[in-house]
């Protein structure tokens, strides 16, 4: 072979080997293609569109053609009256859901683990997981049955006691508690699964040894079950903090109404109304982007911490 050609081939050797390797796996790449296209079109193209957060988007000009306005929309949002309100509502609802949601889930897991009545344990598990699979629209129907001022069960009770009925879903005083407690009602059984799994993985010999040493059942829970739950608890709390700006968009979208916007409106619902209903595409995108960036930082930090403290992580 001509030495010059041989030399140039050797220079391209790395590339050629790589291409040969890729060619060898062409069927796998072909298989991967539809999924990859999905992510490019429905997840990365929106990323490109997100530039309208820094533009004055006009549908006629398109995403690329609309004029730049810099940080205008961010400044508008941060200096607006909504910013504080939305952030407060989002955080209050989120934190309350974590604080009031985890203790019942742990209690339920411990009770399911401790009871000696297998039938009771099984039926409670089956029934308490069920609401997790119901759409928020169905739960809204159930809440209407319980809480509606005219026909709701609870207001019937109040009236029977000679009290005024309370419009739970449309009163600013009760809307947030309704959101938080309905989430607890819907998700407690489901969240208990992780804790129950942790309890089942505790070595039974620990309980037997404690019983022989005269520990009461309560002492066994206190000194064996609860410590056995710590790792999962830390993991669950951290991951929930990682998504703290997700206060439950679908739930609130179904439950809220004009009279309770001041306490029920969260970042996501506001973005929806501004963007889709009021056609403020750029402003809504800016707020969504702000939420996405904070969320990214939070979840990466939470995941780091989870890995450090428990050795487990989400990804």
């Amino acid at each position: 072979m001509n030495p010059a050609i041989a030399k140039s081939l050797a220079g391209r050797d790395g590339l050629a080997t790589l291409l040969r390797r890729i060619w060898r796996y062409r069927l796998l790449y072909l298989m991967l293609l539809p999924g990859l296209l999905y992510f490019l079109i429905f997840r990365y193209w929106p990323l490109w569109n997100a530039q309208i957060a820094f533009k004055d988007f006009q549908p006629m000009l398109g995403v690329w053609g609309s004029p730049w306005v810099g940080l205008q929309h961010f400044q508008d949002f941060f200096s607006s009256y909504y910013f504080g309100q939305l952030l407060a509502n989002t955080l209050i609802i989120s934190v309350a859901k974590i604080a009031l949601g985890i203790p019942p889930a742990i209690l339920l897991a411990i009770a399911l683990h401790e009871t000696s009545r297998r039938f009771l344990s099984r039926i409670v598990q089956t029934m308490s997981y069920l609401p997790h699979f119901l759409s928020w629209v169905i739960v809204y129907g159930i809440l209407l049955a319980m809480l509606s001022p005219s026909e709701g069960l609870i207001n019937h009770g109040l009236r029977a006691l000679g009290l005024e009925p309370i419009p739970f879903l449309t009163s600013t005083a009760t809307f947030q508690p309704v959101v938080v407690l309905s989430e607890v009602w819907k998700e407690t059984g489901w969240s208990a699964i992780l804790f129950l799994a942790a309890l089942l993985s505790i070595n039974p010999a620990l309980y037997e040894a404690a019983a022989i040493d005269g520990a009461s059942r309560w002492q066994q829970v206190r000194h064996i079950s609860l410590p056995g739950l710590m790792d999962v608890l830390v993991l669950v709390v951290l991951l929930k903090i990682g998504s703290i700006l997700d206060a439950g968009f679908h739930q609130i979208f179904v439950l809220y109404s004009l009279p309770v916007y001041s306490v029920g409106d969260i970042i996501d619902t506001w973005v929806y109304r501004q963007g889709i209903q009021n056609f403020q595409f750029s402003l809504a995108t800016a707020v969504g982007l702000f939420k996405g960036l904070i969320g990214l930082v939070l979840i990466v930090v939470a995941n780091r911490l989870a890995r450090r403290f428990t050795g487990s992580s989400l990804y």
Binding site: F39, N49, Y272, Y315
Partner: peptide, 18 residues
Amino acid sequence: LILFTFLFNAGLIPTFLV
């Protein structure tokens, strides 16, 4: 690339535009 889309979401409006 796929994991990143799980951690960061461009938001409702940019997706709606797509």
